[in-house]
Design a protein around this nucleic acid. Structure first.
Lengths: 217, 217
DNA sequence: CCTACCGATCGGTAGG
DNA sequence: CCTACCGATCGGTAGG
């Protein structure tokens, strides 16, 4: 809490070579990244509304108006976080769906990669799933549209697998929402400091979803 | 939006027989119930912070201080909603776990009933899952404790099923979080006005979780 | 990136 | 259950 993380440190180093006279050697992009990082932590801990811009500025060590040098509004900070998550997910789904394997194998790959990504970046994904509803109506519509885009990729894949007889015959909308929901829900309970590694959890969840909880006789 | 629902209407009727001179024939308990109902709708629509006590009072047709006649604070209104949800879940889990059937059969029953309950009362369950983190630290701890209580019931059941060989051998914590998560996630995507009935959705989800998405050969 | 400040919102209370 | 009101918080801006 409050201490610099590794990724932050690495980024600070990366720009050290080409110092441009900015305070403490940070470039503008670096500062922007730092604001996003700290905001992500705080939005996750306390939620968007309960986090003030003063809270964010305090944790970084400057004052609130500095944030307005990099962002037009508080909502823009949230949007930056949420947008990058949906961007990455969209790209990932496109890549895997277009890749090799049967529909069932590609769905398995989607579930593995989606869960891995969430567990590897719990802060931002928690903010994404908890706070994306607080964006302006226009931006929320935009987000929903892109989310629908990648869930539809999975639905088409599922429908294909049902048609070939590879996958259990349930409604593709229900199937994908349920499977993705099971994967996404990890953000609510997984504890990185806990007993189980992220890789173990990913393996067990995806095996459970593939085979069902009833052990085959 | 803004119109009286059936349940509201029914409650108003129920107290008509024994009018006590209250405005529009409502008893105190009735008013309290009405405040909870309207707050539940608004907290779901706009979230807890974005909903003011004036919003709630406006939709009912009186003024903010009236709410303080029935509740000590805004948080108490949220607590009333969240508390009743966790109460019912706890009772349901206890009853089913103590009931008949193999561990696998009782887990199936738990998933069916939990999903049904969520779909039948989407407003309050959405508030529960979205806003329970906004309670005071003491109350949040109390909620988490009771939630843990009923997830542990399911974990013990799962462990028992693994021991007898009935259930797939994955960690009971992972299994129950994943299965429950898949069921709970319905609150985020199920549309009561949509193509599928709640009963169909419950049947398909629980069948999918039991058998897995790969069709048995 | 800072100091100083404004305007609006809102939970909660006094006093009836 | 109402009118009137207070105190605190907070996003955002002026002006440098």
């Amino acid at each position: 809490m409050g201490q610099r993380s590794d990724s932050d440190h690495v980024m600070a180093e990366a720009t050290t070579d080409k110092r441009q006279g900015h305070t403490r050697g940070r470039t503008g992009n670096d500062r922007r990244t730092q604001i996003i990082k700290v905001a992500t932590e705080l939005f996750r801990e306390k939620g968007y509304y309960a986090t003030s811009l003063d809270d964010i500025a305090d944790r970084i060590g400057f004052t609130k108006p500095a944030i307005y040098y990099y962002f037009k509004s508080k909502e823009d900070v949230l949007f930056a976080i949420v947008n990058s998550i949906v961007d990455e997910a969209l790209e990932r789904f496109h890549a895997i769906a277009a890749g090799p394997g049967s529909p069932g194998e590609r769905i398995h790959a989607l579930l593995v990669e989606h869960t891995r990504t969430i567990l590897r970046n719990l802060d931002a994904n928690t903010v994404f799933y908890n706070e994306r509803g607080l964006l302006s109506p226009e931006r929320e519509r935009e987000m929903r549209k892109r989310e629908r885009e990648y869930t539809e990729i999975m639905q088409r894949l599922y429908a294909e697998g049902v048609a070939t007889g590879e996958l259990l015959d349930v409604d593709p909308t229900v199937a994908t929402a349920t499977l993705l929901g099971a994967a996404i829900w990890t953000y609510r309970w997984y504890d990185p400091e806990g007993r189980l590694s992220a890789d173990e959890v990913v393996e067990q969840i995806t095996r459970l979803l593939l085979n069902g909880y009833r052990r085959p006789a």
